[in-house]
Design a protein around this nucleic acid. Sequence first.
DNA 1: GCATCTCTAGACCAGTGGTCCAACCATCGG
DNA 2: CCGATGGTTGGACCACTGGTCTAGAGATGC
Lengths: 209, 209
Amino acid sequence: MARPRFDKLDPARRKAILEVAAEEFAEHGFEGASYNRILERAGFSKGVAYYYFEGKEDLYATVLELTLEGLLGQVAEWTPPRDAEDFWSQLRRTYVTLLDFLMSDERSGRLLHGMSQARMNPKLQGAWLRFEAPLMGWLQRVLADGRKVAAVRTDVPEGLLLAAMMGMGQATDFWLLEQWERHGERGLRRGAEQAFSLFMDLAADRPRA
Amino acid sequence: MARPRFDKLDPARRKAILEVAAEEFAEHGFEGASYNRILERAGFSKGVAYYYFEGKEDLYATVLELTLEGLLGQVAEWTPPRDAEDFWSQLRRTYVTLLDFLMSDERSGRLLHGMSQARMNPKLQGAWLRFEAPLMGWLQRVLADGRKVAAVRTDVPEGLLLAAMMGMGQATDFWLLEQWERHGERGLRRGAEQAFSLFMDLAADRPRA
DNA sequence: GCATCTCTAGACCAGTGGTCCAACCATCGG
DNA sequence: CCGATGGTTGGACCACTGGTCTAGAGATGC
């Protein structure tokens, strides 16, 4: 994740390449982005590039990490819920905050959107692992809290529920984007409510036959 | 999807390249696979390759189509359900049949697994569109049947539910693969039962507050 | 026997990410 | 002030990617 020297690089140049890279990766995704083009636009020679980064994947991971930090800074306030109701309302608020952030910062949205593709790209598994842990960790803690207050089901393995929720989140993300494009912000918010209700039905603890 | 002439090509050569390509794509996915390597192994020159296929993407789509045909041949028996119970039991049977097929034919499994990545690859959207229609169409018809017998919820847009189910299916697919590797066939079957129960909780019609 | 059309081989192209090395430059010890 | 050391830098070069193009071989029809 960016060689240590990178911290000592002139801040202007540091910012320059991160900016250019963010733009390029946001627009074309990881595969589609051209490392050479990024370097050229940022005024980096090959030698310099590989002096500060291990390679394309490394630069990508660095950009993503910064983006994720920005996101988590907005979202992270989570307190142990009092009861099931409190749990779901906190989770809903978090979900909405997240959407607000993604709407307000299109580039970050695209980058994070691309990240979910990265998850399945064999070339990027190294990079993905660094994000999986904190992200999954957060969700895991939240779900654990939910279980404590009997808000989240316990009849199914944790890993399965986690995977299902992540997958659904990713897929509905696409769908929400469509709603946004077609019906504007109102459409997005309505869609988000509906998507969230799906999450609840999927994860909620409830009496079974 | 393979130029028309491809049908007239000597069946042995036809089979040869499809075989080699399936192997390569199954092992490395679309991006990771090398078109040049496929051609070399199949004994195809560049000229021949571009005479019969439009390019890498075209060959990939052709291979996927054949694989999907094989899958649908196994799974497709679907009759309009009598009632909700019949609906869910048919769907469960279909799900299990699908898993059986994927277990029995690892290469097809990998290819289809890769296809779901393709869905989000901008380069492959052309190819994806050809599969999306029939696949989504099938699922759409099934869900419509489910609604008729009050098995499937109607309080949420069809497209959202569709997207959510596809995403969840894809994600749990990964999880199931893990179960299979770690706990063998028994683990897979147990996992599949649990995954299916998630599908039901997600999509089932039920009284709401 | 000539012309037309199908088919084939492979040279070639621009672009990819990555490696490597010679040289530049600042700092430091003497 | 000199030379050495080690952190920087530019850019030639590499193997490889998917894709284009052309010259000609081989078959077929008239």
